[in-house]
Write a protein that binds this DNA or RNA. Structure first.
Lengths: 202, 202
DNA sequence: TGTACATCAGTGAACGCGCGTTCACTGATGTAC
DNA sequence: TGTACATCAGTGAACGCGCGTTCACTGATGTAC
């Protein structure tokens, strides 16, 4: 009911390790239950094999744990996006690579993804840097495509919003109902981008 | 702290009215807080001005209230879709009208919409009839468009999934971040459908 | 090499809270006679 | 028209639960001398 193997204290100077364990347990809880509410001090403590008050050594309160998981999630998404895009020279390939990396992240941590882009006000504040940096990269890629004559986008910012929305919807619905015959991420991205990257007019 | 105006019991034979009040209070709580967890027996009772145990006259337990709100939400979405579509004769107009009605519902009850298509297993079971009826109507409209030469869809079922995903993403993101410069529902639908309904090949 | 001691990394018990749910009950409202 | 009574539409108090958080504490580990 409590922990199976009672854990022994970290050595001196290694107290910080517990922080990582707490974050990992919280992220695991979110992913397994699909709910942020499942992250309780007592359940996290149970999973690691510590007493609940020990958490206060590393986090000021319960919400701070969830916040830290969210921060880590945004950071991981951002590096995934950046890495995937910087590997491609061609603007259209870069855009495509960024979109696929986005969907891959969502598929890797579906519950965390849903929470990252969910409704909490704390998250919305935090989204701003992501939007300007990571999604900004998508906008830039779209703009590059337009400049290179690879897409017909007349308003790259607005088009990037709609591309983002399509990715978001695909990521969420596919995670919730996997067996509806969804195309794979690559095919979905091609499908989505085709509305914006078809050959320009006369 | 409790209720402002103490409510007096319904007359004989009108006990069922309380059921409607409970549902309305629960739906209001979901919409205001954005969270299904906010629906507690005690808070619902507080809002109506009754004692919490009175709810057991109308619902077997807490979850049954949320289930009933969800059922009502799906029913409303379905009739909205059906009504909007049956008013249009042209297949493409019908498809467009259905999509716009879908987005309008999501804009009218953003929190309820998020919960309807959220993660609970109970909801997923319940989605099946909606998917076959309401979304099935979208698939049928897409198929009609293809048959009428109004769109290039080679696989209407797969295309309908992607259209649904785009609508879903737009609905959720716009509700969460309204000030990002989103196109209006009509424009968004045109944008989304343009990828599937552009003039057919040579 | 030995020992006193500071400090690090946690623990155990307890608190108050809101919750879902149960249970015996109550007061107004209609109905039978 | 009057009255006893069944029943409807609820109520109030209490239960046990898991939760976040506080508080005084403890035992192992390293360090100074």
């Amino acid at each position: 009911m409590t922990n199976t193997a009672a854990r022994r204290p970290n050595r001196r100077g290694e107290g910080g390790k517990l922080r990582d364990d707490i974050l990992a347990a919280a992220a695991g809880l979110i992913e397994e239950t699909g709910s942020e509410q499942a992250v309780t001090l007592r359940e996290v403590a149970r999973r690691i094999g510590i007493a609940a008050p020990s958490i206060y050594e590393h986090f000021p309160n319960r919400d701070a744990i969830v916040d830290a998981v969210i921060d880590a999630g945004f950071a991981e998404l951002q590096t995934s996006l950046t890495r995937a895009m910087e590997g491609e020279a061609d603007p259209l390939s870069r855009l495509r690579a960024g979109c696929i990396a986005y969907l891959r992240f969502a598929a890797r941590r579906p519950s965390e993804y849903r929470i990252l882009f969910g409704r909490r006000s704390r998250i919305r504040v935090r989204l701003t840097p992501l939007r300007t940096h990571a999604l900004g990269a998508l906008v830039a890629a779209l703009r590059d495509c337009a400049a290179a004559g690879q897409c017909v986008s007349s308003d790259p910012d607005a088009d990037a919003l709609m591309v983002w929305a399509a990715l978001h919807g695909y990521a969420l619905l596919r995670a919730s109902w996997p067996s509806l015959g969804w195309p794979a991420p690559g095919g979905a991205v091609d499908q989505i981008l085709s509305g914006y990257t078809s050959a320009a007019g006369p």
